[in-house]
Simulated scan of single mutants.
Amino acid sequence: MGILSRMSYVVRSKINALLNRAEDPTETLDYSYEQMRDELQDVKQGIADLTTQKKRLEIQKRRLEENVEKHNDQAREAVRQDREDLARKALEKKQSKMTQIEELEGQIAQLQNTQDDLVDKKNQLENRIEEFRTKKETMKARYEAAEASSRVSEAMTGVGDEMEDVGRAIERAEERTDEMEARSAAMDELQDTGAFDDAISDKDSIDRELDSMRSGSEVDTELETLMAEMGKSSPSSEGDTASDEEIDAQLEELESSESSEPSESVDASADTDTETELEELENEEESRAE
């Protein structure tokens, strides 16, 4: 195969592939069906034209037959009048018309045969068109069903890809969330251990422990001084094991009890003063009465 032949073959194959991709089978079937209907219409038009020609010949044949009768009557009349020459001419014309009638009959018969053949072909074509229409509708239905199925498959494939992207996005979001939660927990742990204070303070762990011991000693000294002033015994160390919540609750109870005691003493003193004033008034009245 030469270069030009190969190029021609490649070009034809490319064009054929493009046409196959651009071709819509349903449109092709509809176009073929319309073409067959057009052919059927042409056959019917040909039959109509042929029938018209046959009718014209038949009309011409009837006119010739009328002329034959007319020439026959003319010959009879000429014989009665002893005009053999006129009778001969009339018969000659009659014979000419008879010849024409025979030719017309042959043409009419030929046209009739052609018409019969065209009618048969028309009927066959109509049957083929009807069969093709049924197959066409069936093929269109199958094609449309296959096309719909293909679109659904493509859509499902697209949805699958999209859902895969969504799944990856969710995984990334979960990883990011876990990372942030871990970071937050780490920050809380560092805050509890004082790592942040270490970072911003110049004191090391020994200095902070000494400060804590020094602060605790100062609190104990102040508590002993306060107990001595109020005549109480030295505090025991049992309360050191109590939690902060329990200590807060005990302090609130103590404050409430102390706030209630002064009010009772005030009421008692008020009653005593009132009784004293009443006794003084009674004494003054008795002295005045004397």
Results as ranks from 00 to 15, higher is better:
51 T>A: 05
53 Q>D: 07
54 K>H: 04
56 R>T: 15
58 E>W: 01
59 I>K: 13
59 I>S: 14
60 Q>D: 09
61 K>C: 05
62 R>N: 15
62 R>P: 00
64 L>K: 13
64 L>Y: 13
64 L>P: 00
65 E>T: 11
65 E>R: 12
66 E>I: 05
66 E>L: 10
67 N>Y: 09
67 N>V: 08
67 N>C: 04
68 V>T: 09
69 E>L: 05
70 K>A: 11
71 H>V: 01
73 D>P: 00
74 Q>H: 09
74 Q>D: 06
74 Q>V: 09
76 R>P: 00
76 R>H: 07
76 R>D: 12
76 R>E: 12
77 E>Y: 06
79 V>R: 13
79 V>K: 06
80 R>W: 01
82 D>Q: 10
83 R>I: 01
84 E>C: 00
85 D>L: 04
88 R>C: 03
88 R>S: 06
89 K>Q: 11
90 A>N: 02
91 L>D: 03
91 L>W: 00
93 K>F: 09
93 K>P: 01
95 Q>M: 06
96 S>Q: 10
97 K>T: 05
97 K>Q: 09
100 Q>D: 13
101 I>Q: 07
101 I>V: 14
102 E>H: 07
102 E>W: 02
104 L>F: 10
104 L>D: 11
104 L>H: 05
105 E>D: 10
105 E>Q: 09
105 E>H: 07
106 G>N: 15
107 Q>F: 02
108 I>G: 01
108 I>R: 06
114 T>D: 15
114 T>F: 04
114 T>S: 15
115 Q>C: 08
116 D>N: 11
116 D>P: 00
117 D>P: 00
117 D>R: 05
118 L>V: 01
119 V>G: 05
119 V>P: 02
125 L>K: 11
125 L>I: 00
125 L>G: 08
126 E>S: 14
127 N>W: 07
128 R>Q: 08
129 I>N: 03
129 I>E: 03
131 E>I: 10
131 E>R: 12
